[in-house]
Amino acid sequence: MNLTVTSAAVDWFRQEWGCVPGDSIRFFVRYGGVSTVQDSFSMGIAKEQPNEIGISTVVDGITFYMEKDELWYMNGQGLTVDYLAATDEVDFKLT
């Protein structure tokens, strides 16, 4: 199980959220919304320091992570986070 954040997504976080090395971006599970990962749930995003990291990756000094208690969402698979310029949105896919 791994977390991959594409360079397009990292660039988007830098431009839209002003992320710099040392920042942390949390991906978390929300009830409701539209998702290609789990029915009735979707991913949320927050710029906050981790509590208990379950999975993470560091790209250009920015830590991207999910908390340990939310890893069930991934069903034992990896998660790829991408930015889709055509729709101007962050995209989540199990890998």
Rank of each mutant, 00 (worst) to 15 (best):
M1A: 12
N2I: 15
L3E: 15
L3W: 13
V5G: 07
V5F: 01
V5M: 13
T6W: 03
T6G: 12
T6C: 15
A9L: 15
V10S: 07
W12V: 06
F13V: 07
F13I: 02
R14C: 15
Q15S: 12
Q15G: 08
E16N: 15
W17K: 11
G18Q: 10
G18V: 00
C19D: 14
V20S: 12
V20F: 09
P21M: 10
D23V: 09
S24N: 10
S24R: 03
S24P: 08
I25N: 10
I25F: 08
R26D: 09
F28P: 07
R30N: 11
G32I: 03
S35H: 00
S35T: 04
S35M: 03
T36W: 05
V37I: 07
V37Q: 05
F41N: 13
F41R: 05
F41M: 00
F41Q: 09
M43C: 11
G44S: 15
A46E: 08
K47P: 06
Q49I: 01
P50H: 02
I53F: 02
G54Q: 14
I55W: 04
I55E: 05
I55F: 05
I55S: 02
S56Q: 13
S56P: 05
S56N: 08
T57V: 15
T57C: 06
V58K: 04
V59S: 02
D60Q: 11
I62P: 07
F64E: 01
F64S: 10
M66A: 04
E67G: 13
K68F: 12
K68M: 12
D69T: 12
L71I: 06
Y73R: 00
Y73V: 11
N75H: 02
G76E: 06
G78Q: 04
G78A: 09
L79H: 00
L79D: 06
T80F: 02
T80S: 14
V81F: 08
V81W: 02
D82Q: 10
D82Y: 09
Y83S: 04
L84V: 02
A86V: 00
E89T: 10
E89S: 13
V90K: 03
F92M: 12
F92E: 14
K93S: 15
K93I: 09
